[in-house]
Simulated scan of single mutants.
Amino acid sequence: MTSPAAPPPPPTPASPSTPPLRLGVIGCGRISQAVHLPAIAKTDAFTLVGVGDTSPRLAQGVAAKYAVPAFATVEDLLDQARPDAVLVAVPDRFHQPVVTAALNAGAHVLVEKPAAATSAQAAELADLADTRGLKLQVGAMRRHDPGIAYARAAVPRLGTLLSVSSWYRIQSRLRPPTEAALFPAMVVDEDVRRTEAGFKSDRAHYLLNTHGAHVFDALANLVGAPSTVRAQFAGHGRDCSWHGTGRLPDGGLASFEISADIHADYAEGMDIHGEYGQVSIRSTFPFFRRASTVRVHLERDGETRSPVFGAADPYQLQLEAFAAAIATDGPANPSGADGVTALRLIEAVRDSAAADGKEVAP
């Protein structure tokens, strides 16, 4: 069947008597403050032992909020805080050196997506983690959304897959007020913001890496990584859109759309059609922390199921899965190798769009 091989079972949670792991956070910017640090504060799996950022304002301001030491360099955090693991949330151009330093210091790593700036860099990190016998988990938190997990388990029941449609559309004017309502008060360094804006000036490259990491990990996780892709790009002002198709492992077709920005509300979903039925997924803006809505229809049974999961924090759930993988020596989900797969698909889409839709193998 065209659905991917079943993933390994989730790691058995560590015993409640197991002491929490020592965790350091490298990168004190927006994503850390909005979701990662609040998730760390809620979980019993980790104890925060320090935060690091090259911006003194960010490092010291965030450290004060969480009553932990602040560090100006990665080396100081690793040497002095001595974490069992680190969460890396720096711009992806820094992922390779930061993750390499952490792994070489003997720390397990949860790294924000994409795994690195390029698939070649991501492959080096995955190989290093394997060599060192350490966990490298990529922060594709949707895998830990209970709705997505339910859908993933249901896909093999569809039989051979014929058609998959996925879309991921980021809102324009509606995004800032939504985030302002959902995010905690932020420590801000305006100099850092100006610097990062310069690196994001190639907006199409930045958006495809950032959002493509999510879209293509979702495809690989749910239906298998496409063996080839065709894609085209359209842009107007700051708005960018990629549409494409991919050939699924056993011959079916997947279509995908990545659009940022759209002048409407956020939209994300996937429809998966196989010989025995359909799985339909609709996801909300991730910072709402609400599980995806899933409908599973099996034609031969005359049955449609749509479980209700309600609120769920995938950022906290991915941390707890990371801790369990460390404690039990289970597999990271997604792994460093999964991060490589997503980046290879991003690069193939970019190459195909540059060649006016030529078929490209990742």
Score class of each variant (00 low, 15 high):
Ala140His: 11
Ala291Glu: 03
Ala332His: 13
Asp92Met: 11
Pro10Ala: 13
Pro334Lys: 05
Leu58Gln: 11
Asp356His: 15
Pro362Ile: 04
Ala355Phe: 13
Phe309His: 01
Arg57Trp: 12
Pro56Asn: 08
Phe233Lys: 13
Ala231Asp: 14
Ala116Ser: 11
Ala122Arg: 01
Ala63Asp: 04
Ala105Gln: 15
Gly302Trp: 10
Ile258Met: 11
Leu207Tyr: 06
Ile326Gly: 03
Arg175Trp: 10
Pro177Gly: 08
Asp265Trp: 12
Val138Leu: 13
Ala204Asn: 07
Gly52Lys: 13
Thr118Arg: 02
Ile272Glu: 00
Phe322Leu: 05
Phe256Tyr: 12
Gly29Tyr: 00
Leu136Val: 14
Val294Leu: 07
Gln121Ser: 07
Met141Thr: 11
His263Arg: 06
Val294Ser: 05
Leu253Ile: 12
Ala59Pro: 10
Leu78Trp: 06
Gly251Trp: 07
Lys42Val: 09
His211Gln: 02
Ser165Thr: 12
Ser32Tyr: 05
Arg203Gln: 11
Gly139Glu: 12
Asp261Phe: 00
Ser201Glu: 15
Ala353Lys: 01
Glu268Gln: 14
Leu58Asn: 03
Ala225His: 00
Arg93Asp: 06
Ala185Cys: 03
Ala197Pro: 00
Gln278Trp: 09
Val294Thr: 02
Met1Arg: 04
Arg132Phe: 11
Tyr315Gln: 06
Leu134Ser: 10
Gly27Glu: 13
Asp130Thr: 15
Pro156His: 05
Arg290Ser: 04
Gln171Pro: 10
Gln137Leu: 10
Arg238Cys: 02
Glu124Val: 08
Val25Met: 07
Gly274Pro: 08
His95Met: 06
Ile272Trp: 01
Pro10Leu: 10
Lys113Leu: 01
Asp191Tyr: 15
Val35Cys: 07
Arg295Met: 01
Pro177Asp: 08
Gly133Lys: 15
Ala337Cys: 03
Ala348Val: 09
Ala67Glu: 14
His95Gly: 02
Thr245Asn: 07
Leu103Trp: 03
Ala323Asn: 15
Glu303Arg: 01
Pro177Leu: 11
Ala151Trp: 02
Phe288Arg: 10
Asp301Ile: 03
Arg194Thr: 14
Asp44Lys: 12
Gln232Ser: 14
His144Phe: 07
Asn104Phe: 01
Leu134Ile: 10
Asp261Val: 01
Pro249Ala: 04
Thr118Asn: 04
Leu298His: 01
Ser280Asn: 14
Ser172Glu: 09
Val35Gly: 01
Glu347Lys: 04
Arg142Leu: 09
Asp301Thr: 02
Leu103Thr: 08
